[in-house]
Structures are given as C-alpha cells and as structure tokens.
Simulated assay, not measured.
Amino acid sequence: MSETQHGTTPTTTRGWRGFWERGGVWRALLVAVVYLALYLGAGWLGSTLFSDAIVLDDLFATPGSVFVALALPLLVGAALLVAFVGSLRWFPVLFGAQPAGRGWMWVAPALVLVPVVLRLFGVDYGAYASGVVATTLFAGLLVGFVEEVLCRGVVVQLLRRGGASEWVVMVVSSLVFALLHSANALTGMAPGTVIATVVYTFGFGVAMYLTLRVTGNLVWPILLHGLFDPLLFLSTGGIDTVADGGATNLLLTLAGPFNILFIALGVVALFLARAVNRR
C-alpha cells in the first residue's frame, strides 16, 4: 500500500496500522491522552522509587533531582513514542518534507530564537551545582523531542490523515499541546497559573507549528523547543515558573516579554486561515 506524504492514506491496511492511518481528531486526542497518562504514571513511579534523589523545595538543586523529576519520565515517554511511531512506520513521513510555508511564518522561529539567545548569555550558570546545567540541557532536549514528535508529529499527521485543513491542524495540535500542560494542576499549581500556562503554551504551540511549516522539517521545532525550555528553566529556577530576572540581569528582562508575544502570535494566527492552509 502506498502512503501519501502529508494527508490522507488509503484505508486498505487493517489492524493496528489501519486503525491509526484513518486519522481524525478523536484519534489525535486519544493518543495524547494515553501518552499523558503513561508519562504521568512514569513520573509517579520514578518519584516513588527514587524519592530520596528529588529535592522538593528546589528540583534544580542537584543533577539527580533534575534527572529523576524531569528527565526520567521523559526518557520513558520518548521510548514509548519511538515504539509507537515505529510500529506505524511513520518516521519517514513525520521527518519528511512538510507543506510549504509562507514568508511571514519566519516570525515564529525568530520569536523563539531571540529569547533562547538572550537566556543563553543571561543565565547565571555558576549559581547551580556541578552537573545541574548539563542534566537540565539534556532533559530539555528530551522535552523538545517528546513534545514535538507527539504534537507536531503524530497529532499533526493524524489530523491531516483525517482530512483536516492546515488551519484546523494548527489550532487543534496547539490546543492538544496546551491542554497537556493543564496536568500541572495535579502538582498543586494554582488554578490561575495553570490557565495562564495553557494560554501561553497554545501560543507557543502555534509558533512551533509555523516553524514546522516554514523550515519544512520536524527537526527544527525539536531543536528550538529543546533549547528554549531548559534555558527558561535555568533562568527562572523552576518549571513553568515566571521570575523577574530584571533586577540583576538585563538580558533575562528582555527575554521575558516574548511569552506575551507568543500569545499574540497565537491570536493573530487564528485569523490567518487562508495564509496557513497549504499551497
């Protein structure tokens, strides 16, 4: 059976592959929910088995704390995603050429790259114990791989195979990405902060989708996302935490407003249906 590169696939394949190759919104939601449950389960199991390694008051206090709290569940998630994508033989499709983007879409990777550079030179690496920075960067690359393969890879592919327009693909994949972060509520995060995080991550999801389109390959969203998150963690000292680095560091102050720009980009992109749809 032949497979199309970006959208629909003949439904002659049966069984496991045939089920997923039909695509659709509900299958995209299903794979995201199942992944989130398994990821949270892996995180709970790791924190239970290796509770002594986690510094609850400061996850970034030691390399072991970062690894168990952040990297370990991501390693499990990455293995699950690799197995899932491999079982469907979708790696060539997910990492193949994407529908052509338009020039204005370069705004998205630029909005991600600028704060990455600012934080790269603005983070006080000396404030962290030996090994913490390296472990955090490793965990960040795992975040980029896992979240982009899931949301801009598998979810996007399922939506396309279900016949969705690229505008719908952008919106739904970004919503899935944003709602995955609502799981922060399970960690005791305040409801208002959870809502703000979901809104922000929707805008960031749109930026990653546009990056996928304009660069033409999933590798670039993975790399940008994989650099953005760990540098944000190191600049704020936490996960999904907003901190004011301006009192001592101008570069971190300049990086802060880009979170608002991601939200603005998400809102603007909602009104660019024709410009988003593939040519």
Rank of each mutant, 00 (worst) to 15 (best):
L118K: 02
V268Y: 08
R14W: 05
I263K: 03
M105Y: 02
A79N: 04
W20D: 03
A247G: 15
T48Y: 07
V25Q: 01
Y125L: 13
F204R: 13
R160N: 10
L232V: 02
V168K: 09
T4H: 13
V82R: 11
V206S: 06
L56R: 15
G7Q: 12
G162L: 14
F121Y: 11
G205F: 05
I195K: 12
F145Y: 04
G7K: 12
A207W: 07
T12Q: 09
V268T: 07
G140S: 05
V199E: 03
A69R: 04
V176S: 04
A71P: 09
L265A: 07
G131V: 08
E147G: 05
G46D: 05
T201V: 12
I54V: 12
P63R: 06
V143T: 13
V112W: 03
G226W: 02
I54T: 01
M1A: 14
T62P: 11
A183G: 09
T13D: 15
G101S: 14
E166G: 09
L180I: 14
T13V: 13
F95N: 10
R278D: 12
V169M: 03
L81K: 00
V107M: 14
G245C: 05
T48V: 12
A78D: 04
V214Y: 06
T215I: 14
V155T: 01
D244V: 08
Y128G: 04
F271V: 05
L59F: 12
L186M: 07
N249V: 11
L29M: 06
I54M: 03
F91A: 09
V194H: 02
S65P: 13
L74Y: 01
I263V: 15
L142E: 06
F228C: 03
Y128M: 11
Y200H: 11
V146Q: 04
V33R: 03
T9C: 12
L210I: 08
S173P: 06
G246Y: 05
